[in-house]
Design a protein around this nucleic acid. Structure first.
Lengths: 194, 194
DNA sequence: TCAATTTTCAACAGGTTGTTTAGTAGTACG
DNA sequence: CGTACTACTAAACAACCTGTTGAAAATTGA
């Protein structure tokens, strides 16, 4: 029984790996099921035994990514929560995000590019927003002093963060996650000083 | 002669209008040339007399949008340049951008959503970045004090701006461009005070 | 060995693409 | 007026991709 499950899992993984491979040189729009199964060296019909279509395939990869992201952040929260200042915690959150990005950089580079699927940056932003919102709302003085609607502030700050990520990934990860965190703090300080 | 040119122009416009119309209820990926020509009530072959394919069609609409954006900003620059402080000028630039967005909101709402084409937000960001960079580099004290690479700062700030735009458009333009400018300033002030 | 499961193979109808060829309607101009 | 030009139409074409099917083959379990 579990050998069947294992075989099933391996084929799905093979399909995903081949798919991501092709995605580096071809846009999602122009990739056909035939392209994928040819690379994976499996029958075209086999693809349909595992996925409804190529949208379903991408959906599942995306969902896995967002789940991983959530878990990565939750782990941090439970470890360091309330053992340090609010500012330090924000910094820690930033560092966690950057290290997550580093791990998944090849995938993110594609998904954020024009080879990916429309709207990914929005879905990614929402996934991050949920976590950031939770973190910010823990601090009462923060929410009390915020004069603008939370949704606008969240969209502002997570997009800004995503901007750094995009530049970083586009530059081929020219910095370490620690350097990126420092860079992020430097920008905030620069804005404060002006 | 000009009657031919005019007819040609009108057909292209009809195709573009029909295309944008369909794009509200169907994603770019799933739209066929047949969908477009059926809505426009023209022969399918006629489409190919004006565009290479649906990618070419979207490219031309996008390019027009970015040209308009550039012109909109350039106009502002030539009118108010150097007659006010750097900060006021930045504020003016923000206001100009928000008013441009308001005009093109229906199109932007689609292009930034999952009905659009992958990578649009990057291309849009680049178009805005070019203009913002020009504006920032005019101020020597600004560039002198900036410790982080300009590309990272630009990506950070234009993405943040794009985040506000996305939220605004998604909220169905619940504010005026003036209110959005004020909101933008409030966020900057909030970050400074903390 | 026999049954269950996964994958393969070939074929199918239906749809989309981009091109072509021939024909129609309107316009320009000597 | 008549000829040439232009935009568009209509229909057909091969090539390709889709998602599904039915039967067979290969792998694994008991």
């Amino acid at each position: 029984m579990s050998v069947y499950t294992e075989k099933n899992r391996k084929t799905k993984q093979l399909i995903q790996k081949s798919f991501m491979e092709i995605l580096e040189s071809k846009s999602f729009e122009s990739i056909t099921i035939g392209d994928i199964t040819k690379t994976a060296q499996i029958n075209r019909g086999t693809f349909y035994l595992h996925y409804q279509d190529k949208f379903d395939l991408l959906d599942q990869i995306e969902q896995q990514l967002f789940e991983d992201l959530g878990q990565h952040i939750d782990e941090l929260q439970s470890r360091y929560s309330s053992t340090q200042t609010f500012e330090k915690e924000q910094e820690q959150l930033a560092a966690t995000l950057f290290s997550f990005i580093e791990i998944h950089a090849p995938m993110l580079k594609i998904f954020l590019s024009d080879h990916g699927r429309a709207g990914f940056h929005i879905r990614f932003k929402n996934a991050v927003s949920t976590k950031v919102r939770f973190n910010l709302e823990k601090n009462e003085s923060f929410t009390a002093n915020l004069k603008v609607p939370m949704e606008y502030f969240l969209s502002f700050i997570t997009s800004a963060f995503l901007g750094l990520i995009e530049q970083w990934v586009q530059n081929g990860l020219d910095k370490t996650p620690q350097e990126m965190t420092a860079l992020y703090i430097d920008i905030i300080l620069f804005i404060k000083k002006r």
